[in-house]
Write a protein that binds this DNA or RNA. Structure first.
Lengths: 374, 374
DNA sequence: CGATTCTAGTCAGGGCTCTTGCCTGGAAAG
DNA sequence: CTTTCCAGGCAAGAGCCCTGACTAGAATCG
């Protein structure tokens, strides 16, 4: 059973991913293994083509003593693509195993988004990021501004909800640009992941309410985003809540009634909403009551420790106060606060996951390298 | 690193838990290890006092060949208590590592339940089951018919919800009867666990709606019951839904308005509800609409593959049909069906978990036995 | 009734990975 | 130039596992 050797190699790889470059002696101390073991593992991983002597040597002020050889992940272990697809544009980033962005490409999309155009834009930015990356992408992680089918990764149209990106199969579109799998999820779920990573102390159970052109919600339970059976968890457009006149109606109906949709669309006109909410306290209160009802349902069903509100108009303090007021009537209490990550939160979450998956793929390659010896 | 030896011992223990008694040769074949390794592991586990030669010998029709010695878990590796606490009574069962009930004690409670009386009953049945069990209980798993605080295990009173059992701290009450930890959770969550275990093919994402004196809901996501930050996930009494006249109101208000509560209590009078629902189609439809609204919220937020309805009046087919009709108006679809486990579902779930925790405790003891050698 | 057959369990030898202890190489400090 | 100090390699030994051969003992067969 070479299980113990595999865990040693994994620890060496993970430690190098965390510290970028280390000598064998440093590895032995950090991991808590002996020097011969560290040396053996480094030799195996070098033979497997995963790490290499960087050529750098120690003695940079460490005092006397023999110089050590720094080892690091090889450049060509690969990168991972993080792709963000939204109605206003498409972004692709190639991230390395350290989580750093090595290449980036971006393209705007004319509105309304047409699927063929979006697919072409995704191909363009993916190809661009892939060619400019220092190593070919092994896998891709996609954030899309529409509901995602968990089994297939395709975008799903729900009745009366805005279809911001439209019919699209990111897995098929991106498969030619990567050698490994393509993972797809909703932008709100990725934003919640970014929020979870940013939280200190860690937040294991919370809800993320996204308020933008579309309305979405992500539920994090026991430290993970929970997607539900088909991936449609958190699709709150039809959740029944309190309407402007106190009547019960689906959340999306509230926006229709308040005249906040873009003409001929179920998407929210964010600019109009923000100016209307500033100008009209009653409208702001109506929004707060409607969203407070959504949060009441969230709290009753999922019991989050906090509700994080993000998105283009979710960070607005006046709206946040209205939401707090709209929720306050209920019997339960919960902290409602603005999201910490405001710049491209979904891409941030996708990027974190892309790096994490890339690291897992590299570790798996180390395990496979010895299983099928050359 | 004795990691590999620890996994060998664990596999031997787990295999014995599954097959009750095996010879060393059978262990080697079942686990896929060599005979000497199996023999070594058996010797270690025997020295640690976890397993023993049962005295039984093979050759029961196996043909010629040397007789083998059967080994099995020792009787005194311990049992686990599964305790069910509800308004009508208290049950304690001592289960062994095979999941079989070795002793059982039961006591009724006069209504309304008074905390001191409930605590006394819990002590009585726990002591009774513990003394009649073949080995002392190492741990306890408690199902209680009230919301449970996840951090402390105490029962929680929520406003306007029936407090069926009342102020009680099962951890403190049961600690004297066990040497290890006491785990407490809501009866609905345990019932959902029982349902998950009974489902074939496995159900990883579903919701369990419990309809009894109290109203509850459990959410299973990615194969686990999700309890939320404080353990109050699924407390749906205040979820806003459609009332009898089409007005929005909390679920508990629907029952108040329909006159289905026990006098002076927020608990539902099940007998009255069942006869009224049979006699009056409009009332049945009103119930169906209210519960359909709850399921719509469940589906929007958690996206279950199915909604399982259980509890004293949840299995009623006429009510189930009304619930299906009440939900059908929404944009999403989901299978709504009656629970498979109808006899003491919560205790069944708690019992499964008690056995599972006992097995984990025994395996942990094997790991610890060598860490601190005598 | 003895020889044969067949299986449970043990023993011996060897491989793998880990560890400790010792040695060598080589640059900086004094 | 000598001393100091650290990176790295080598050798020996321990622990766990495996294979293959051996022993023990009961059932079956001729």
């Amino acid at each position: 059973m070479d299980l113990v050797r595999a865990t040693t190699d994994e620890r060496v790889l993970r430690t190098l991913m965390e510290h970028r470059r280390l000598t064998r002696a440093e590895l032995a101390v950090l991991i808590g293994i002996s020097k011969p073991t560290a040396g053996e593992s480094v030799r195996r991983l070098t033979d497997a083509g995963l790490i290499a002597d960087t050529g750098e040597r120690t003695a940079g002020g460490r005092g006397r003593g023999r110089v050590g050889s720094y080892y690091a992940l090889r450049q060509d272990v690969g990168t991972a693509l993080a792709v963000g697809i939204g109605p206003e544009g498409v972004i692709a980033e190639a991230v390395d195993a350290y989580g750093e962005v090595a290449a980036r490409a971006e393209q705007e999309i004319s509105r309304p988004a047409r699927p063929a155009q979006v697919a072409a834009a995704v191909r363009t930015v993916a190809a661009d990021a892939a060619t400019r990356a220092p190593a070919p992408p092994r896998l891709a992680v996609v954030s899309a501004a529409d509901p995602v089918d968990r089994a297939t990764g395709r975008l799903v149209q729900l009745p009366d909800a805005p279809f911001l990106v439209g019919e699209l199969d990111p897995v098929t579109v991106l498969a030619p640009y990567v050698t490994g799998p393509v993972a797809v999820d909703n932008d709100v779920n990725w934003a919640a992941q970014a929020e979870r990573a940013a939280a200190n102390p860690p937040l294991a159970d919370f809800a993320y309410l996204y308020l933008g052109e579309g309305l979405g919600c992500a539920l994090v339970s026991d430290g993970e985003v929970r997607r539900g059976a088909t991936g449609l968890a958190g699709e709150i457009a039809h959740l029944v809540t309190t309407g402007p006149q106190g009547r019960a109606m689906p959340l999306t109906g509230v926006f229709a009634e308040l005249g906040l949709h873009r003409p001929g669309s179920a998407a929210i006109d964010v600019d109009r909403l923000l100016s209307a909410a500033t100008a009209s306290p009653p409208l702001r209160e109506a929004l707060g009551r409607a969203l407070g009802g959504v949060i009441a349902a969230l709290v009753a069903l999922a019991d989050p420790a906090a509700v994080v509100v993000g998105g283009p108009w979710g960070g607005n303090e006046a709206i946040l106060d209205a939401v707090r007021a709209g929720f306050a009537g209920g019997p339960r209490k919960v902290a409602i606060r603005a999201a910490a990550t405001t710049a491209l939160p979904a891409l941030t979450g996708a990027r974190l996951d892309a790096a994490s998956r890339l690291r897992a793929a590299i570790v798996a390659a180390a395990g496979a390298a010895h299983a099928i010896p050359s």
